[in-house]
Design a binder for these strands. Structure first.
Length: 589
RNA sequence: GGGGUCGUGGUGUAGCUUGGUUAACACGCUGGCCUGUCAAGCCGGAGAUCGCGGGUUCAAGUCCCGUCGGCCCCGCCA
């Protein structure tokens, strides 16, 4: 092992080109691979910027012998002369492929053990290993690229919002636990034993208070914490681009976000998108795609066939219709080829998604084929077929249930079928807004209305009267931005008037005392001159994931946690000393 | 909380359906050869009680039960 001494890196491993031929350079990096030809010895030196081939010639004596001991992932410094590669030896696969560096001096700055998986391998390593040895995983160009895309998105976000007059303000990480929403991560207080801070699920209330404070335009790229089960696109801690603005309505927030989105597309992917972005109401998204975050990269739309199903002799459908429920359906072009087992799998999936059953019928030249086919007259068959229209060789899939339940099940089937049939175009970016969300949803367990977005979301002006008479019909000034079937941002205009807020709390069955206890500081703030305001928050990790073309946000987070919320590299969470617990006044059960 | 799936030398996989001799292949590692490769090549070598525990059996990587871990999904995530 040798000292760096006064050596300075003159170029990165991705910098040298044929124009540099003849230059004396100093490169530092990791051994990406080595090739011993008995005589000449090659090393591909790697850093974040690229790879450069180093050549060691036998004439170099002592240094040549030293070079022969180099192995993968050794950290080395090399001094030498840039040389054009001999004719026919150019490697078109790398940017530095026209040159190589003829080594004159070599320092082995640090050796490396044989790595648990091959860093520059073409074979993938198991994710468990990648997470445990994250520093090795992050040496891979793919992962470095993801983090660089992430960095570009930070930069674009900050530049854009700065240009639009937004102020980056930090909000507390240690805050008061608030009810509603996700489970909080708690931090015990040493000074006030038995009391806890909570880590923010989002800085929601702080940013609203910043509006009361007159900051007018706030943003923050901020870590948020939710103690809920994970998914490919959900981690215990994640990052939001949090935005709030005063004296605006829904259109202002949406226009701002569209500008930011377009700039991201331009800067990161070099693509222009046309504005304004398309919009769907929640009702339409559910009716046509069975999802509040529909993937519009493919069709396969759902149709409501309740009326026609009611004209059949099929008992299940007839009872559904007379019971005031609906029958919805999908048509899979070419789906008649599906085997019994494939259809059984679909039915099982539908059941898992909450359906009571799945009725499938194959479309033929003469009508329908399948167990239930005989209950439908040719007239009804013709009209149902006409809905898509369906043709011979297609498969019809029916779900009979309450409207939204049936839509959701078919929405899930729609996605699954699109994946199986490879209907989703790669490398396409489909943005849309979903607007006019219901303000509330009824919680069957607690037998009360719950805020769908959060309890400060304003109802649409024209729906305020319905709050008392038909809460289920009230639409919110809320909007979600969807990209390729993933919700990437969501926001709303907030209630800024005490009276309306009070009304909402009553509806949510939150007593004055409870409201006071839980949100008192915010409500009090609203009494000292709260401007109309609203905002939005991006799920930043999801955004990076989609821009990087990955399937999990773990690939765009430097140190993510597993499904079970463990950090395999550092072993968090871990037990702590008895002494630490005593200081906090905590006794384990 | 529930469902699914995977776990085999250091790594990635095959073998498991239908139990049966020495667990196979590639990469990596290692010894040797080789002066122009670039996922170098050629010859040789080491390296696996098949995640863990129990059971069935004359016999278990293979079948059964349990358990642990990774991943995907439902619930959950205002």
């Amino acid at each position: 092992m040798e000292k760096l001494g006064n050596w300075k890196r003159s170029h990165t491993c991705g910098a040298l080109r044929k124009e540099n031929a003849g230059a004396e350079v100093t490169l530092m990096g990791w051994v990406d691979s080595w090739r011993d030809h008995g005589g000449v010895f090659f090393v591909d030196l790697r850093d974040r910027y690229g790879k450069t081939q180093i050549v060691f010639n036998p004439e170099a004596g002592e240094m040549y012998q030293k070079a022969k001991d180099l192995r993968n992932e050794f950290v080395v410094a090399v001094r030498g002369q840039v040389a054009l590669r001999p004719t026919g030896m150019i490697n078109k696969n790398i940017a530095t492929g026209e040159i190589e560096v003829a080594a004159k001096e070599l320092k082995i700055l640090n050796p490396a053990k044989v790595t648990p998986f091959e860093v520059s391998a073409y074979v993938e390593a198991a994710e468990e290993l990648r997470l445990k040895y994250r520093y090795l995983d992050l040496r891979r160009p793919d992962m470095q690229r993801n983090l660089l895309i992430r960095n570009e998105l930070y930069k674009t976000t900050r530049a854009y919002l700065d240009r639009h007059g937004f102020v980056d303000i930090e909000t507390p990480i240690l805050m008061r636990s608030t009810p509603e929403g996700a489970r909080d991560y708690l931090v015990p207080s040493r000074l006030y034993k038995g009391s806890f801070y909570a880590l923010p699920q989002s800085p929601q209330m702080y940013k609203q208070i910043l509006m009361v404070a007159g900051m007018d335009r706030y943003f923050q790229i901020v870590r948020c914490f939710r103690d809920e089960d994970t998914r490919a696109d959900r981690q215990p801690e994640f990052t939001q681009i949090d935005i709030e603005m005063s004296f605006v309505d829904q259109e202002d927030v949406m226009a701002l976000v569209e500008g930011l989105t377009a700039e991201m597309m331009q800067n990161i992917l070099g693509r222009k998108i046309s504005l304004p972005l398309p919009r769907l109401t929640y009702a339409e998204a559910m009716a046509r795609f069975g999802s509040d975050k529909p993937d519009l990269r493919f069709g396969l739309e759902i149709r409501d066939v309740t009326a026609l199903a009611g004209q059949s002799e099929f008992k299940i459908f007839v009872e559904t219709v007379t019971g005031g429920k609906t029958v919805q359906a999908l048509c899979l072009p070419g789906g008649a080829k599906y085997s019994r087992k494939q259809i059984d799998d679909l039915a099982q999936y539908a059941t898992q998604m909450g359906a009571k059953g799945l009725v499938t019928l194959k479309v033929t030249e003469s009508g329908w084929e399948g167990g239930a086919a005989k209950f439908f007259s040719s007239g009804v068959i013709g009209k149902v077929n006409a809905a898509w229209p369906a043709k011979a060789g297609d498969l019809l899939l029916f779900v009979a249930d309450e409207e939204e339940k049936a839509q959701k099940v078919l929405g899930a089937l729609r996605l699954r079928l699109a994946q199986e049939e490879k209907l989703i175009p790669e490398n396409s970016f489909n943005f849309l807004w979903v607007v006019d969300f219901p303000l509330l949803e009824f919680d069957e367990e607690e037998k009360r209305w719950m805020a769908r977005h959060h309890p400060f979301t304003a109802p649409k002006d024209e729906d305020i009267a319905l709050v008392d008479t038909a809460p289920e019909k009230v639409r919110a000034k809320a909007y979600d931005l969807v990209l390729n079937g993933t919700e990437i941002a969501g926001g709303s205009i907030r209630i800024h008037q005490r009276e309306l807020q009070k009304k909402m709390f009553n509806l949510l069955k939150l007593s004055d005392a409870e409201a006071e206890n839980k949100f008192g500081f915010l409500l009090e703030a609203f009494e000292y001159g709260a401007p109309p305001h609203g905002g939005i928050a991006f799920g930043f990790d999801r955004l990076v994931m989609l821009f990087a073309g990955r399937k999990s946000i773990r690939d765009v987070i430097a140190f993510p946690k597993t499904n079970a919320a463990l950090s395999l590299m550092d072993g968090a969470p871990s037990p702590v000393d008895e002494k630490q617990l005593r200081e906090l006044g905590i006794k384990l059960a």
